[in-house]
């Protein structure tokens, strides 16, 4: 018999691991990934593969050569960041831009803060917003869905979001008739018009992923549900007040809203810890998104809203404590 081990309790573990959680998120992204392949073909494959490979490479290289620490790529967090970054890019984006995005996401968004667990902002969004500001033309021309063989040569078109912006700018509600129906937007079956980024096309595929993560208890419902409800209510009120604002279902299923609500805002590291804090965070993101979309310069507000609220996360954590045992008023 070897030496006995002594340690403090507990002596058993749930068997959960960081890798396992990241893997579950990646699995949850699979339906959306498949759908983007169906919609954009080669372009989607190139963008996703480049993004994942570049993120993993940069994380490995930085831990290995700069931090001289044990590489942490096995925890799959870099792969997940890469996949999410890819989902936030148009399918005709040149490879070199994607690589720059990955470098910013991993290098600046994550590793400068000390790696997984220490970053303040969602790395994939840091990468995306960097690209959006640096390469506004490439980042805001989206190819039309259905060109399976095309990559950078794909024909581009107007996305639902740009249609909505145009309607508001012109004060003309009839422009909105160019939008696909709510059901088409939910399923991602656009017959015409640019579709947007890779992962934004099918809300349904993203919702399937959400269900998977809830089932696996990877995330809780608080953030996605609070975002979606806030957007629905706020956009609904605007729509009722003035029909130049699109109907709330179309708002929900357009652009990166579902992707952001389900996958980006729920990033463990940059979201609040207590459920109360998560609700506040979600409501604020929903509100900011609608404000930026309808009254701001950019057609899409999800990324900015999430990044803004990421900055507030430490503050929310400080003030929103979970309800302590015994605080409940006796019934």
């Amino acid at each position: 018999m070897g030496k006995l081990t002594i340690s403090l309790s507990p002596h058993v573990h749930s068997g959960d691991s960081v890798q396992n959680n990241m893997l579950n998120v990646i699995i949850a992204l699979v339906p959306a990934a498949l759908f983007s392949l169906y919609a954009f073909g080669v372009g989607a494959a190139v963008v996703m593969l480049t993004s994942v490979a570049a993120c993993v490479f940069f994380e490995w290289a930085i831990t290995r050569f700069i931090l001289k620490a044990e590489p942490t790529v096995c925890d799959l967090s870099a792969a997940l960041t890469g996949l999410l970054l890819g989902f936030n890019l148009p399918s005709n984006l040149p490879i070199w831009i994607i690589i720059i995005g990955a470098l910013v996401a991993i290098g600046i968004g994550k590793m400068t803060f000390g790696g997984l667990g220490c970053n303040i902002f969602n790395p994939a969004l840091v990468g995306r917003v960097f690209l959006l500001i640096s390469f506004p033309v490439q980042m805001t021309t989206w190819p039309e869905a259905g060109q399976l063989g095309a990559y950078t040569d794909a024909t581009t078109g107007a996305t639902p979001l740009s249609v909505m912006t145009t309607a508001i700018k012109n004060g003309d509600a009839s422009v909105l008739s160019q939008l696909p129906s709510s059901m088409d937007m939910l399923l991602g079956t656009y017959s015409q018009g640019g579709a947007g980024c890779l992962g934004e096309i099918s809300a349904l595929a993203l919702l399937i992923g959400f269900a998977w993560m809830l089932l696996k208890k990877t995330i809780t419902w608080h953030i996605p549900v609070s975002i979606i409800c806030t957007v629905f209510v706020f956009a609904g009120l605007l729509h009722v007040a003035n029909p130049v604002y699109a109907n709330p279902f179309q708002v929900l299923f357009s652009g990166g809203l579902m992707l952001g609500a389900i996958f980006m805002a729920t990033d463990y590291v940059s979201s609040p810890m207590s459920s109360k804090g998560q609700l506040i965070y979600g409501v604020a993101i929903g509100f900011l998104t609608v404000v930026i979309r309808n009254f701001g310069a950019y057609p899409e507000g999800m990324s900015f809203a999430i990044l803004i609220m990421n900055a507030f996360t430490p503050l929310i954590n400080n003030y929103c404590k979970p309800k302590r045992f015994g605080e409940v008023v006796k019934k």
Partner: peptide
């Protein structure tokens, strides 16, 4: 001589609470 193995947070205070040590 070490007679048991300690497994836990690398902290003397924790090890001290775990038992007599290794």
């Amino acid at each position: 001589p070490r007679i048991v193995e300690y497994d836990g947070a690398i902290s003397c205070r924790v090890a001290n609470a775990t038992g007599a040590g290794e």
